[in-house]
Design a binder for these strands. Structure first.
Lengths: 363, 363
DNA sequence: CTGAAAGCGCTTACAG
DNA sequence: CTGAAAGCGCTTACAG
């Protein structure tokens, strides 16, 4: 009974276990195959396959024998082998190419995707591109070599035509957070421009006329869109755009903090700031506090942050719904896998203004 | 030329692309197989395999022909089929069973694992158990069906003996954040008791004698360990343990906030609090602020939080190094995969006290 | 150095 | 309802 270890009915305390040294990998223990199950049950391979696939056409008594053998051996079907032969060739895995899985926005996105995928028994493979186009492609290709059913990509690279052949071959493809380039595919975005419009309009409604803009690298889609929303809100309220109030290319808290300080020390300093990204908001909050301006200069951030309501005054933000973005992304992906064949869709997920204090300070 | 779409040398703007409707999945496009590469190159299947595997034994001119055919067809090897036949049967995938991938602690853990796995071309599959033992097991088994090389588990369940057979069959297994039960395996933990000792000792050194403890569910390993560290610090400083100062079973910000209020309204309220978990710290910070006690009652939290330095006073914490925990976990896993056969290891990752203000308030 | 053939663990027509 | 056989896309002895 090679597999008897599996049969232990009752949990055993650690100290009663054979040590790894006498009982580890390769020491005779192997995974049972379907063939071994067949032999033990006294049936053919095909019959075992039918039972395992719950095909229903097997005589109850034989099916029971097979199930007993499965339990006895601790048999677990090899999905890879299964899919090799199956007509649909579905791996029940999808690949997620993120910027950085440790980023809370991406973590929430992942969670949203997982929630939907779970209902279909699909598991996500994940990787971080760190904004590196080569890495993005390497990851996508590594997922493809594992024959994922679909691919979800937060684009880093400037060209996604390398995915065209796979897309044509039936791999579902959805982009999220930023649109793809040189390929026609479904895509889920935040309403970046709309959210920035709302944030800026909120400050304008509070009486501010000099509103500073602190943004990420211009080449990043979301940064450009948020700047656009800011400009459109100014225009809609008849306030002239002043580029001296704009600081772009900020990619972390430190550079954002410096840019905020610079803006606030100018001749005609802004009475309000719009920090157009997470890390930028953090750096800005810190600097305002340092300068003891946190009760005087208004601030609205794009994207919500932990403890935003625990600072004083609370940080007003335009929140993205990353979880909902993840769900929607997965839904578009599975719709393609289910055979939807229409033209590509672009979905925008709304943002939500959360007033907590900093955005309501008057000039 | 079925695969000509793949040959497009220059990226084409979206509007020049054939629409999905005329050119989508199943419309003739298929993935090329190794056999097709062989035919196109005019060599045998075995030769293609040797070239693709960079075996080096193929005549350069033939190898070039093969590589040309590979490029022309856009051939990508099927890893699943490869592994089915290969002796080592390595899938170059590992499975991660987390509590919740959206939790920043787990996201950082994942990132640490990814960093190490990446150097080996190994990709992580991930899933969230949501503290549900059944879900933990389902996820582990789904990963195992996909023949992962190893499994990393943040335990939810009270019994992991179900993994024994697979472990014996050679699947590497490492637990992280909490130790496993009823199975002997490697394990990576934070120094929970040590960190809690440090936090408590810091408050004692500041002159506090009545220190409240706000903790998570007692059944959770980390919650118990942190309580232990708190008690040991009190004992080491000759301060009697008073259970009226302890509130356990707090699992979110709201319950923590209520518990903090309750503690502070007692006859002999604490002059300091130790919030032994992330969400508990957030609830406590909010409540102290509401009660306008945030400059009077000292506070140290376990685990760092975004914006902890932007509140006033800054939140003093004992920080865990989740990224480092992830790296260490992956290293133990790969050591097993590389054949290390010694007894199981338990590694504790140190925590670090970060003084920011709340922990330095005097009684 | 190269190819024909066996086989990895499965599913699926095809007979019976 | 059941089984023998072919075959999914690969790798790997084995001859030559």
């Amino acid at each position: 009974m090679v597999y008897s270890a599996r049969m232990a009915a009752e949990p055993t305390p650690d100290d009663e276990l054979p040590s790894r040294e006498t009982f580890s990998a390769g020491n005779g223990a192997r995974r049972p195959t379907m063939k071994e199950v067949a032999t033990l049950a006294g049936v053919s391979l095909a019959t075992v396959s039918r039972v395992v696939n719950a095909d229903g056409s097997v005589r109850p008594d034989l099916a029971d024998k097979v199930r007993e053998a499965v339990a006895l051996l601790g048999y677990r079907r090899d999905l890879a082998a299964t899919n090799l032969r199956r007509a649909d060739r579905a791996s029940s895995s999808i690949g997620l190419v993120f910027d950085d899985v440790a980023n809370p926005f991406h973590a929430a996105l992942l969670r949203g995707v997982e929630t939907v995928a779970r209902t279909r028994g699909v598991l996500p493979l994940v990787g971080s591109s760190d904004e590196d186009p080569d890495r993005e492609r390497e990851l996508a290709e590594a997922f493809l070599a594992r024959r994922v059913d679909g691919l979800i990509v937060v684009p880093s690279g400037p060209d996604h035509s390398y995915l065209r052949a796979e897309s044509d071959a039936g791999v579902a493809l959805v982009f999220v957070d930023r649109p793809p380039a040189f390929i026609d595919a479904d895509c889920v975005l935040s309403d970046n421009a709309g959210g920035a419009f709302t944030a800026t309009a909120h400050l304008l409604a509070g009486g501010h006329r000099r509103i500073g803009f602190l943004g990420d690298q211009q080449r990043i889609f979301t940064a450009g869109e948020r700047l656009r929303g800011y400009r459109e809100a100014l225009a809609a309220h008849g306030v002239a755009f002043d580029e001296r109030l704009v600081r772009m290319e900020l990619h972390d808290s430190a550079t954002a903090s410096a840019a905020a300080a610079d803006l606030l020390s100018s001749d005609e300093p802004p009475t309000a700031l719009f920090s157009a990204q997470n890390l930028i908001s953090i750096g800005t909050v810190q600097r305002l506090r340092q300068l003891d301006l946190h009760r005087r200069v208004a601030l609205v951030g794009f994207d919500d942050i932990t403890l935003a309501d625990a600072i004083d005054p609370g940080l007003t933000v335009v929140a993205q719904d990353a979880n909902e973005m993840g769900r929607m992304t997965a839904e578009l992906l599975f719709a393609r896998l289910d055979g939807r064949n229409g033209p590509s869709r672009r979905v925008e997920i709304p943002t939500r203004l959360i007033e907590r204090g900093t955005g309501e300070l008057r000039p």
